[in-house]
Design a protein around this nucleic acid. Structure first.
Lengths: 233, 233
DNA sequence: TGTACATCAGTGAACGCGCGTTCACTGATGTAC
DNA sequence: TGTACATCAGTGAACGCGCGTTCACTGATGTAC
Protein backbone atom coordinates (compact mmCIF):
# COMPACT_ATOMS: atom_id res chain seq x y z
CA UNK A 1 0.00 0.00 0.00
CA UNK A 2 1.46 3.25 -1.13
CA UNK A 3 1.48 6.36 1.03
CA UNK A 4 -0.81 9.14 0.00
CA UNK A 5 0.60 12.61 -0.28
CA UNK A 6 -1.20 13.47 2.93
CA UNK A 7 0.31 10.51 4.82
CA UNK A 8 3.76 11.41 3.55
CA UNK A 9 3.40 15.00 4.62
CA UNK A 10 2.12 13.92 8.00
CA UNK A 11 5.16 11.70 8.50
CA UNK A 12 7.45 14.55 7.52
CA UNK A 13 5.78 16.87 9.98
CA UNK A 14 6.10 14.33 12.79
CA UNK A 15 9.78 13.98 12.05
CA UNK A 16 10.20 17.73 11.96
CA UNK A 17 8.53 18.06 15.36
CA UNK A 18 10.82 15.43 16.81
CA UNK A 19 13.92 16.98 15.30
CA UNK A 20 13.06 20.39 16.70
CA UNK A 21 12.25 18.88 20.09
CA UNK A 22 15.69 17.27 20.15
CA UNK A 23 17.32 20.51 19.18
CA UNK A 24 15.53 22.44 21.88
CA UNK A 25 16.47 19.84 24.48
CA UNK A 26 20.09 20.21 23.47
CA UNK A 27 19.86 23.84 24.55
CA UNK A 28 17.47 23.74 27.48
CA UNK A 29 17.89 20.23 28.83
CA UNK A 30 15.59 17.24 28.59
CA UNK A 31 13.54 17.95 31.69
CA UNK A 32 12.08 21.26 30.57
CA UNK A 33 11.00 20.45 27.02
CA UNK A 34 7.84 22.39 26.21
CA UNK A 35 5.42 22.56 23.33
CA UNK A 36 5.28 26.29 22.69
CA UNK A 37 8.88 26.79 21.57
CA UNK A 38 8.53 23.81 19.24
CA UNK A 39 5.52 25.45 17.63
CA UNK A 40 7.32 28.79 17.42
CA UNK A 41 10.31 27.18 15.72
CA UNK A 42 7.97 25.61 13.16
CA UNK A 43 6.09 28.88 12.62
CA UNK A 44 2.95 27.09 13.59
CA UNK A 45 0.40 27.67 16.32
CA UNK A 46 0.83 25.52 19.42
CA UNK A 47 -2.40 23.71 18.84
CA UNK A 48 -1.26 22.48 15.48
CA UNK A 49 1.12 20.16 17.33
CA UNK A 50 -1.76 18.43 19.04
CA UNK A 51 -2.81 17.00 15.67
CA UNK A 52 0.39 14.94 15.82
CA UNK A 53 0.88 14.18 19.49
CA UNK A 54 -1.93 13.84 21.97
CA UNK A 55 0.08 15.78 24.56
CA UNK A 56 3.58 16.53 25.71
CA UNK A 57 4.03 13.11 27.30
CA UNK A 58 3.16 11.34 24.07
CA UNK A 59 5.89 13.31 22.33
CA UNK A 60 8.39 12.33 25.02
CA UNK A 61 7.41 8.69 24.73
CA UNK A 62 7.90 8.77 20.96
CA UNK A 63 11.33 10.35 21.35
CA UNK A 64 12.43 7.82 23.95
CA UNK A 65 11.24 4.88 21.89
CA UNK A 66 13.09 6.25 18.86
CA UNK A 67 16.24 6.61 20.90
CA UNK A 68 16.31 3.09 22.25
CA UNK A 69 15.67 1.71 18.80
CA UNK A 70 18.32 3.88 17.16
CA UNK A 71 20.82 2.75 19.77
CA UNK A 72 19.96 -0.90 19.20
CA UNK A 73 20.22 -0.31 15.43
CA UNK A 74 23.69 1.14 15.86
CA UNK A 75 24.79 -1.84 17.93
CA UNK A 76 23.33 -4.44 15.60
CA UNK A 77 24.87 -2.66 12.69
CA UNK A 78 28.30 -2.67 14.34
CA UNK A 79 28.00 -6.38 15.00
CA UNK A 80 26.88 -7.24 11.48
CA UNK A 81 29.34 -5.05 9.63
CA UNK A 82 32.40 -6.23 11.53
CA UNK A 83 34.51 -7.99 8.94
CA UNK A 84 35.92 -10.62 11.28
CA UNK A 85 33.81 -13.59 12.36
CA UNK A 86 35.48 -13.55 15.76
CA UNK A 87 32.81 -12.80 18.38
CA UNK A 88 35.45 -11.01 20.45
CA UNK A 89 36.04 -8.57 17.61
CA UNK A 90 32.31 -8.22 17.14
CA UNK A 91 31.78 -7.52 20.84
CA UNK A 92 34.52 -4.91 20.76
CA UNK A 93 32.85 -3.22 17.80
CA UNK A 94 29.47 -3.29 19.53
CA UNK A 95 30.79 -1.74 22.74
CA UNK A 96 32.61 0.97 20.84
CA UNK A 97 29.44 1.66 18.85
CA UNK A 98 27.49 2.00 22.08
CA UNK A 99 29.62 4.88 23.27
CA UNK A 100 29.80 6.42 19.83
CA UNK A 101 26.06 6.57 19.68
CA UNK A 102 25.90 8.18 23.12
CA UNK A 103 28.54 10.79 22.30
CA UNK A 104 26.99 11.58 18.94
CA UNK A 105 23.51 11.84 20.49
CA UNK A 106 24.19 13.21 23.96
CA UNK A 107 20.71 14.59 24.47
CA UNK A 108 19.03 11.42 23.33
CA UNK A 109 21.20 9.37 25.65
CA UNK A 110 20.43 11.78 28.46
CA UNK A 111 16.72 11.54 27.79
CA UNK A 112 16.88 7.77 28.14
CA UNK A 113 19.37 7.41 30.96
CA UNK A 114 19.54 10.75 32.73
CA UNK A 115 17.31 12.33 35.32
CA UNK A 116 13.70 11.26 35.18
CA UNK A 117 11.40 13.99 33.91
CA UNK A 118 9.14 15.29 36.69
CA UNK A 119 5.60 14.12 36.24
CA UNK A 120 6.44 11.76 33.40
CA UNK A 121 7.00 8.04 33.38
CA UNK A 122 7.83 6.17 30.19
CA UNK A 123 5.38 3.31 29.57
CA UNK A 124 7.31 0.04 30.05
CA UNK A 125 5.51 -1.74 27.21
CA UNK A 126 7.24 0.74 24.88
CA UNK A 127 10.66 0.96 26.46
CA UNK A 128 11.35 -2.55 27.75
CA UNK A 129 11.36 -4.35 24.38
CA UNK A 130 13.56 -1.60 22.91
CA UNK A 131 16.04 -1.88 25.77
CA UNK A 132 16.06 -5.66 25.55
CA UNK A 133 16.98 -5.40 21.87
CA UNK A 134 20.31 -3.71 22.55
CA UNK A 135 21.03 -5.88 25.54
CA UNK A 136 20.52 -8.98 23.43
CA UNK A 137 23.21 -7.88 20.99
CA UNK A 138 25.90 -7.80 23.67
CA UNK A 139 24.78 -10.81 25.62
CA UNK A 140 24.53 -13.00 22.52
CA UNK A 141 28.16 -12.33 21.71
CA UNK A 142 29.28 -12.90 25.30
CA UNK A 143 27.49 -16.24 25.35
CA UNK A 144 29.17 -17.24 22.10
CA UNK A 145 32.57 -16.25 23.46
CA UNK A 146 32.03 -18.36 26.56
CA UNK A 147 30.66 -21.37 24.69
CA UNK A 148 33.50 -21.40 22.22
CA UNK A 149 36.04 -21.22 25.02
CA UNK A 150 37.42 -17.88 23.83
CA UNK A 151 37.43 -16.61 27.39
CA UNK A 152 38.75 -18.35 30.48
CA UNK A 153 37.50 -16.30 33.43
CA UNK A 154 39.77 -16.25 36.48
CA UNK A 155 38.59 -18.14 39.58
CA UNK A 156 37.09 -15.12 41.31
CA UNK A 157 35.06 -14.29 38.24
CA UNK A 158 33.99 -17.62 36.71
CA UNK A 159 30.65 -17.79 38.50
CA UNK A 160 27.77 -15.54 39.47
CA UNK A 161 28.31 -14.37 43.08
CA UNK A 162 25.89 -16.40 45.22
CA UNK A 163 23.83 -13.43 46.50
CA UNK A 164 23.03 -12.50 42.91
CA UNK A 165 22.09 -15.94 41.61
CA UNK A 166 18.42 -15.61 42.46
CA UNK A 167 17.97 -12.22 40.79
CA UNK A 168 19.83 -13.24 37.66
CA UNK A 169 17.76 -16.42 37.47
CA UNK A 170 14.51 -14.48 37.77
CA UNK A 171 15.57 -12.06 35.05
CA UNK A 172 16.46 -14.88 32.66
CA UNK A 173 13.06 -16.45 33.20
CA UNK A 174 11.21 -13.16 32.79
CA UNK A 175 12.75 -12.32 29.44
CA UNK A 176 12.88 -15.94 28.29
CA UNK A 177 16.25 -15.47 26.68
CA UNK A 178 18.19 -18.77 26.53
CA UNK A 179 21.57 -17.74 27.84
CA UNK A 180 23.75 -18.78 30.73
CA UNK A 181 23.53 -16.86 34.02
CA UNK A 182 27.23 -16.07 33.77
CA UNK A 183 26.77 -14.44 30.36
CA UNK A 184 24.02 -12.23 31.77
CA UNK A 185 26.17 -11.37 34.77
CA UNK A 186 29.06 -10.38 32.53
CA UNK A 187 26.72 -8.29 30.41
CA UNK A 188 25.33 -6.42 33.40
CA UNK A 189 28.81 -5.87 34.78
CA UNK A 190 30.07 -4.51 31.50
CA UNK A 191 27.01 -2.36 31.05
CA UNK A 192 27.27 -0.72 34.44
CA UNK A 193 31.01 -0.14 34.14
CA UNK A 194 30.82 1.46 30.72
CA UNK A 195 27.69 3.36 31.64
CA UNK A 196 29.70 5.22 34.27
CA UNK A 197 32.41 6.16 31.80
CA UNK A 198 29.84 7.52 29.36
CA UNK A 199 27.85 9.44 31.95
CA UNK A 200 30.93 11.10 33.41
CA UNK A 201 32.09 12.04 29.93
CA UNK A 202 28.65 13.31 28.89
CA UNK A 203 28.43 15.69 31.82
CA UNK A 204 32.08 16.75 31.58
CA UNK A 205 33.11 15.35 34.93
CA UNK A 206 35.99 13.21 33.74
CA UNK A 207 37.57 15.58 31.26
CA UNK A 208 39.76 17.37 33.84
CA UNK A 209 41.46 14.04 34.57
CA UNK A 210 41.46 12.41 31.16
CA UNK A 211 42.34 14.26 27.99
CA UNK A 212 41.58 11.62 25.42
CA UNK A 213 38.24 10.20 26.44
CA UNK A 214 37.98 7.96 23.38
CA UNK A 215 41.25 6.26 24.33
CA UNK A 216 40.07 6.07 27.93
CA UNK A 217 36.85 4.33 26.95
CA UNK A 218 38.74 1.90 24.76
CA UNK A 219 41.10 1.14 27.63
CA UNK A 220 38.07 0.40 29.80
CA UNK A 221 36.62 -1.91 27.18
CA UNK A 222 39.90 -3.78 26.95
CA UNK A 223 40.07 -4.08 30.73
CA UNK A 224 36.56 -5.47 30.72
CA UNK A 225 37.49 -8.21 28.27
CA UNK A 226 40.82 -8.99 29.94
CA UNK A 227 39.06 -9.37 33.24
CA UNK A 228 36.63 -11.82 31.67
CA UNK A 229 39.68 -13.84 30.65
CA UNK A 230 39.52 -13.03 26.95
CA UNK A 231 42.87 -13.15 25.18
CA UNK A 232 43.25 -10.02 23.09
CA UNK A 233 45.80 -9.68 20.29
CA UNK B 1 33.15 34.77 69.52
CA UNK B 2 29.73 33.58 70.50
CA UNK B 3 26.79 33.63 68.16
CA UNK B 4 24.11 36.15 68.89
CA UNK B 5 20.54 34.96 69.04
CA UNK B 6 19.99 36.64 65.70
CA UNK B 7 22.92 34.86 64.06
CA UNK B 8 21.75 31.55 65.44
CA UNK B 9 18.25 32.06 64.16
CA UNK B 10 19.60 33.08 60.78
CA UNK B 11 21.63 29.89 60.56
CA UNK B 12 18.59 27.83 61.49
CA UNK B 13 16.51 29.50 58.80
CA UNK B 14 19.18 28.88 56.17
CA UNK B 15 19.25 25.22 57.12
CA UNK B 16 15.48 25.05 57.02
CA UNK B 17 15.44 26.55 53.53
CA UNK B 18 18.01 24.01 52.34
CA UNK B 19 16.17 21.11 53.93
CA UNK B 20 12.90 22.11 52.29
CA UNK B 21 14.64 22.63 48.96
CA UNK B 22 16.04 19.09 49.18
CA UNK B 23 12.64 17.72 50.05
CA UNK B 24 10.98 19.50 47.13
CA UNK B 25 13.65 18.25 44.75
CA UNK B 26 12.99 14.71 45.92
CA UNK B 27 9.45 15.12 44.63
CA UNK B 28 9.86 17.33 41.59
CA UNK B 29 13.40 16.60 40.46
CA UNK B 30 16.51 18.71 40.74
CA UNK B 31 16.10 20.63 37.51
CA UNK B 32 12.84 22.37 38.37
CA UNK B 33 13.53 23.60 41.88
CA UNK B 34 11.76 26.91 42.42
CA UNK B 35 11.59 29.50 45.17
CA UNK B 36 7.85 29.91 45.57
CA UNK B 37 7.07 26.40 46.84
CA UNK B 38 9.92 26.69 49.34
CA UNK B 39 8.40 29.90 50.68
CA UNK B 40 4.95 28.32 50.78
CA UNK B 41 6.26 25.33 52.72
CA UNK B 42 7.83 27.70 55.24
CA UNK B 43 4.66 29.82 55.50
CA UNK B 44 6.71 32.77 54.46
CA UNK B 45 6.46 35.19 51.58
CA UNK B 46 8.73 34.47 48.64
CA UNK B 47 10.71 37.61 49.15
CA UNK B 48 11.69 36.58 52.64
CA UNK B 49 13.94 33.96 51.05
CA UNK B 50 15.95 36.63 49.30
CA UNK B 51 17.26 37.77 52.68
CA UNK B 52 19.11 34.44 52.82
CA UNK B 53 20.05 33.70 49.24
CA UNK B 54 20.69 36.33 46.63
CA UNK B 55 18.78 34.34 44.06
CA UNK B 56 17.88 30.81 43.07
CA UNK B 57 21.32 30.06 41.67
CA UNK B 58 22.98 30.99 44.96
CA UNK B 59 20.74 28.49 46.72
CA UNK B 60 21.69 25.79 44.22
CA UNK B 61 25.37 26.54 44.67
CA UNK B 62 25.05 26.27 48.45
CA UNK B 63 23.27 22.93 48.14
CA UNK B 64 25.86 21.53 45.74
CA UNK B 65 28.77 22.65 47.92
CA UNK B 66 27.12 21.05 50.96
CA UNK B 67 26.66 17.82 49.04
CA UNK B 68 30.23 17.46 47.91
CA UNK B 69 31.46 18.19 51.40
CA UNK B 70 29.04 15.78 53.04
CA UNK B 71 30.14 13.08 50.63
CA UNK B 72 33.81 13.74 51.37
CA UNK B 73 33.00 13.71 55.10
CA UNK B 74 31.36 10.32 54.76
CA UNK B 75 34.35 8.92 52.92
CA UNK B 76 36.94 10.34 55.31
CA UNK B 77 34.90 9.09 58.18
CA UNK B 78 34.77 5.57 56.70
CA UNK B 79 38.53 5.60 56.25
CA UNK B 80 39.27 6.85 59.74
CA UNK B 81 36.84 4.65 61.59
CA UNK B 82 37.91 1.41 59.90
CA UNK B 83 39.37 -0.68 62.69
CA UNK B 84 42.03 -2.37 60.58
CA UNK B 85 45.18 -0.51 59.56
CA UNK B 86 45.22 -2.35 56.26
CA UNK B 87 44.79 0.23 53.47
CA UNK B 88 42.93 -2.40 51.43
CA UNK B 89 40.31 -2.68 54.16
CA UNK B 90 40.18 1.08 54.42
CA UNK B 91 39.71 1.44 50.68
CA UNK B 92 36.92 -1.13 50.75
CA UNK B 93 35.20 0.82 53.52
CA UNK B 94 35.58 4.09 51.63
CA UNK B 95 34.12 2.70 48.41
CA UNK B 96 31.19 1.15 50.26
CA UNK B 97 30.62 4.46 52.04
CA UNK B 98 30.58 6.25 48.70
CA UNK B 99 27.63 4.25 47.46
CA UNK B 100 25.90 4.35 50.82
CA UNK B 101 25.98 8.10 50.77
CA UNK B 102 24.57 8.17 47.25
CA UNK B 103 21.75 5.76 48.04
CA UNK B 104 20.88 7.54 51.27
CA UNK B 105 20.94 10.94 49.54
CA UNK B 106 19.71 10.15 46.04
CA UNK B 107 18.59 13.68 45.27
CA UNK B 108 21.80 15.22 46.49
CA UNK B 109 23.83 12.80 44.41
CA UNK B 110 21.61 13.57 41.44
CA UNK B 111 22.07 17.29 41.92
CA UNK B 112 25.84 16.87 41.79
CA UNK B 113 26.19 14.21 39.13
CA UNK B 114 22.93 14.14 37.19
CA UNK B 115 21.64 16.34 34.41
CA UNK B 116 22.93 19.87 34.43
CA UNK B 117 20.31 22.42 35.41
CA UNK B 118 19.31 24.58 32.46
CA UNK B 119 20.70 28.08 32.78
CA UNK B 120 22.83 27.23 35.80
CA UNK B 121 26.50 26.44 36.07
CA UNK B 122 28.14 25.68 39.40
CA UNK B 123 31.12 27.97 40.03
CA UNK B 124 34.29 25.81 39.84
CA UNK B 125 36.01 27.65 42.69
CA UNK B 126 33.32 26.21 44.96
CA UNK B 127 32.95 22.72 43.56
CA UNK B 128 36.45 21.74 42.49
CA UNK B 129 38.08 21.79 45.96
CA UNK B 130 35.12 19.85 47.39
CA UNK B 131 35.38 17.21 44.67
CA UNK B 132 39.13 16.97 45.09
CA UNK B 133 38.64 16.26 48.80
CA UNK B 134 36.76 13.03 48.20
CA UNK B 135 39.03 12.00 45.36
CA UNK B 136 42.04 12.44 47.60
CA UNK B 137 40.64 9.95 50.11
CA UNK B 138 40.53 7.14 47.57
CA UNK B 139 43.70 7.94 45.72
CA UNK B 140 45.74 8.22 48.93
CA UNK B 141 44.79 4.69 49.89
CA UNK B 142 45.48 3.36 46.40
CA UNK B 143 48.92 4.93 46.44
CA UNK B 144 49.65 3.36 49.81
CA UNK B 145 48.49 -0.05 48.58
CA UNK B 146 50.80 0.20 45.57
CA UNK B 147 53.78 1.48 47.53
CA UNK B 148 53.50 -1.23 50.15
CA UNK B 149 53.29 -3.88 47.47
CA UNK B 150 49.82 -5.00 48.55
CA UNK B 151 48.74 -5.11 44.92
CA UNK B 152 50.54 -6.70 42.01
CA UNK B 153 48.75 -5.50 38.90
CA UNK B 154 48.69 -7.93 35.96
CA UNK B 155 50.83 -7.05 32.92
CA UNK B 156 48.00 -5.45 30.93
CA UNK B 157 47.15 -3.19 33.86
CA UNK B 158 50.45 -2.25 35.51
CA UNK B 159 50.95 0.96 33.56
CA UNK B 160 48.94 3.92 32.31
CA UNK B 161 47.93 3.26 28.69
CA UNK B 162 50.21 5.44 26.53
CA UNK B 163 47.46 7.60 24.98
CA UNK B 164 46.41 8.64 28.49
CA UNK B 165 49.83 9.44 29.93
CA UNK B 166 49.79 13.07 28.86
CA UNK B 167 46.36 13.82 30.32
CA UNK B 168 47.09 12.07 33.60
CA UNK B 169 50.37 13.95 33.86
CA UNK B 170 48.68 17.29 33.28
CA UNK B 171 46.07 16.53 35.92
CA UNK B 172 48.68 15.61 38.50
CA UNK B 173 50.50 18.86 37.89
CA UNK B 174 47.32 20.93 38.01
CA UNK B 175 46.22 19.62 41.37
CA UNK B 176 49.74 19.34 42.74
CA UNK B 177 48.97 16.08 44.48
CA UNK B 178 52.12 13.97 44.91
CA UNK B 179 50.96 10.60 43.72
CA UNK B 180 51.99 8.19 40.99
CA UNK B 181 50.26 8.36 37.61
CA UNK B 182 49.21 4.73 38.01
CA UNK B 183 47.43 5.49 41.29
CA UNK B 184 45.48 8.28 39.63
CA UNK B 185 44.65 6.04 36.70
CA UNK B 186 43.34 3.35 39.04
CA UNK B 187 41.33 5.93 40.92
CA UNK B 188 39.70 7.26 37.77
CA UNK B 189 38.98 3.76 36.53
CA UNK B 190 37.38 2.76 39.79
CA UNK B 191 35.42 5.97 39.97
CA UNK B 192 33.94 5.64 36.50
CA UNK B 193 33.10 1.96 36.97
CA UNK B 194 31.35 2.43 40.29
CA UNK B 195 29.69 5.61 39.10
CA UNK B 196 27.85 3.59 36.48
CA UNK B 197 26.60 1.10 39.02
CA UNK B 198 25.28 3.87 41.25
CA UNK B 199 23.65 5.84 38.46
CA UNK B 200 21.86 2.79 37.08
CA UNK B 201 20.65 1.90 40.55
CA UNK B 202 19.57 5.46 41.34
CA UNK B 203 17.37 5.66 38.27
CA UNK B 204 16.06 2.11 38.64
CA UNK B 205 17.57 0.81 35.43
CA UNK B 206 19.45 -2.12 36.88
CA UNK B 207 16.85 -3.42 39.31
CA UNK B 208 15.04 -5.63 36.75
CA UNK B 209 18.28 -7.58 36.29
CA UNK B 210 19.74 -7.47 39.79
CA UNK B 211 17.67 -8.08 42.89
CA UNK B 212 20.22 -7.34 45.56
CA UNK B 213 21.92 -4.16 44.45
CA UNK B 214 24.01 -3.87 47.61
CA UNK B 215 25.54 -7.28 46.93
CA UNK B 216 25.99 -6.33 43.30
CA UNK B 217 27.88 -3.17 44.20
CA UNK B 218 30.08 -5.10 46.60
CA UNK B 219 30.83 -7.65 43.90
CA UNK B 220 31.87 -4.80 41.63
CA UNK B 221 34.13 -3.35 44.30
CA UNK B 222 35.76 -6.74 44.79
CA UNK B 223 36.26 -7.12 41.04
CA UNK B 224 37.86 -3.73 40.96
CA UNK B 225 40.40 -4.69 43.59
CA UNK B 226 41.03 -8.15 42.15
CA UNK B 227 41.73 -6.60 38.78
CA UNK B 228 44.25 -4.25 40.35
CA UNK B 229 46.01 -7.34 41.65
CA UNK B 230 45.00 -6.95 45.27
CA UNK B 231 44.81 -10.18 47.21
CA UNK B 232 41.56 -10.26 49.14
CA UNK B 233 40.93 -12.61 52.06
C1' DT C 1 -14.95 14.45 -15.26
C1' DG C 2 -17.82 16.97 -11.74
C1' DT C 3 -19.77 17.58 -7.47
C1' DA C 4 -21.14 16.84 -2.59
C1' DC C 5 -19.33 15.55 1.47
C1' DA C 6 -16.08 13.85 5.00
C1' DT C 7 -11.77 14.18 6.85
C1' DC C 8 -7.73 16.40 8.03
C1' DA C 9 -4.40 20.51 9.03
C1' DG C 10 -3.96 24.35 11.23
C1' DT C 11 -5.67 28.90 13.72
C1' DG C 12 -6.34 32.07 17.59
C1' DA C 13 -8.34 33.48 21.72
C1' DA C 14 -8.79 32.25 26.30
C1' DC C 15 -8.25 29.83 30.98
C1' DG C 16 -5.83 29.08 35.03
C1' DC C 17 -1.67 28.37 36.51
C1' DG C 18 3.42 29.02 38.02
C1' DC C 19 7.82 31.42 37.63
C1' DG C 20 11.98 34.88 39.37
C1' DT C 21 12.57 39.21 40.65
C1' DT C 22 11.56 44.57 41.46
C1' DC C 23 10.06 47.78 44.62
C1' DA C 24 8.56 50.35 48.61
C1' DC C 25 7.04 49.13 52.97
C1' DT C 26 6.40 47.68 58.30
C1' DG C 27 7.71 45.89 62.47
C1' DA C 28 11.06 43.51 65.39
C1' DT C 29 15.70 43.04 67.26
C1' DG C 30 20.09 44.65 68.59
C1' DT C 31 23.61 48.48 69.70
C1' DA C 32 25.81 52.88 71.27
C1' DC C 33 25.71 56.34 74.36
C1' DT D 1 18.82 51.57 83.03
C1' DG D 2 16.71 54.39 79.20
C1' DT D 3 16.49 56.04 74.81
C1' DA D 4 17.62 57.06 69.94
C1' DC D 5 19.04 54.96 66.10
C1' DA D 6 20.71 51.37 62.85
C1' DT D 7 20.20 47.00 61.21
C1' DC D 8 17.76 43.05 60.07
C1' DA D 9 13.50 39.94 59.00
C1' DG D 10 9.76 39.65 56.61
C1' DT D 11 5.49 41.48 53.77
C1' DG D 12 2.58 42.14 49.70
C1' DA D 13 1.54 43.98 45.38
C1' DA D 14 3.05 44.12 40.86
C1' DC D 15 5.68 43.16 36.36
C1' DG D 16 6.47 40.50 32.50
C1' DC D 17 6.99 36.20 31.28
C1' DG D 18 6.08 31.09 30.01
C1' DC D 19 3.39 26.88 30.50
C1' DG D 20 -0.27 22.85 28.80
C1' DT D 21 -4.55 22.45 27.33
C1' DT D 22 -9.79 23.75 26.16
C1' DC D 23 -12.71 25.26 22.73
C1' DA D 24 -14.98 26.68 18.53
C1' DC D 25 -13.43 27.85 14.18
C1' DT D 26 -11.66 28.11 8.93
C1' DG D 27 -9.76 26.45 4.94
C1' DA D 28 -7.44 22.78 2.33
C1' DT D 29 -7.16 18.00 0.77
C1' DG D 30 -9.00 13.65 -0.38
C1' DT D 31 -13.01 10.31 -1.48
C1' DA D 32 -17.44 8.31 -3.13
C1' DC D 33 -20.69 8.44 -6.45
Amino acid sequence: MEKTRREQKREDTINEIKAIARHLMSEGGTTTLSMRPIAAEMRMSVMGLYRYFENRDALLTALIADNFNAMADAMENARDSERSDDPVQKLLAVLIAYRSWAIEHPVDFQLNYGNPIPGYEAPPEITVPAVVRSFVVAIGLIEEILQRGLAIPPPHYDHVPPPLEAGIGTALERYGYPVSPLALYFAVTGWSQLHGVIMLELFNHIQPLIEDSTAYYEAQVHNLLYNMGVKLP
